[in-house]
Structure formats: C-alpha cells, structure tokens
C-alpha cells in the first residue's frame, strides 16, 4: 500500500502536527519506505489467530473506591504554560 501526500496531510491533521510542505514531501517518502517494511506482515497467514494485546495475558485488578488524592493545584499549575484563577487557559474555543 502506498501513501499519497493527502494521506500524510490527513494523518498530520488528526495528530495535530504542523508540517511544512517540505516536511510533508520528505515524510511521504520515508513513510512509504516504512510501510514497505511493514507490509511484509501481509505474507504471514494469520487466519484464526487471536490478536495479542499483552504478552502475559494477565487480568486487570480493580482498586477500592476511596479518595486518596489531595489538592496539589498550585504545584501542578506552576508548570503550566498559562493558568489563571485556577483554570488552564487556551485560545478561545468556539462552540
């Protein structure tokens, strides 16, 4: 399977990655060569093989419903790019 530059732009938009035209072109070539590698998978017959998400196939443990966290807003917001009145600020979102 081969990518087009529109595919790259679409993926970049979904991933919120700003790419210049030059980067898009360079990325296209590289992604196609990576996909060439990836497509070697298709030689393997995987009919009836269940996908494996975790190697050890363990089961999830659940935690008890208890409040264990306390307020650390000041510490966390000290490293925020922009915060005011306890809120994280971003450019106005129009709904």
């Amino acid at each position: 399977m081969s990518l087009t530059s529109d595919d790259v732009k679409r993926a970049a938009k979904l991933a919120r990655l700003g790419l210049t035209e030059a980067e898009t072109t360079e990325t296209l070539t590289q992604l196609n060569s990576i996909l060439g590698l990836v497509d070697q998978m298709q030689q393997i017959d995987t009919n009836g093989v269940a996908p494996l998400a975790h190697p050890l196939e363990l089961k999830q443990t659940l935690r008890a419903d208890a409040v264990t966290e306390n307020n650390q807003r000041d510490k966390f917001q000290a490293i925020a790019p922009q915060a005011e009145a306890g809120l994280y600020l971003v450019p106005r979102v129009v709904e």
């Binding site: 979904l14 990655l17 990576i34 990836v38 998978m41 393997i44 995987t46 093989v49 996908p51 494996l52």
Partner: peptide
C-alpha cells in the same frame, strides 16, 4: 517522533485498522 506518530495515526485510522494494527497483534501472538 513525528514520523512514528504519523505511521501510528495512519495504522489506526478507519479502514486500515485490520490490515495493520490487528494484523500486527496477530503476528505478535505467533
């Protein structure tokens, strides 16, 4: 990093999931 994000985004996107992600997880089991 951007290359891998783009590959991953593409592999998970609609219509390609089975051919890429699911296939890779099946091979993982093998």
């Amino acid at each position: 990093v951007k290359r891998r994000i783009l590959i991953g985004t593409y592999a998970l996107s609609e219509g390609y999931y089975d051919a890429y992600y699911k296939k890779a997880q099946q091979i993982r089991r093998l």
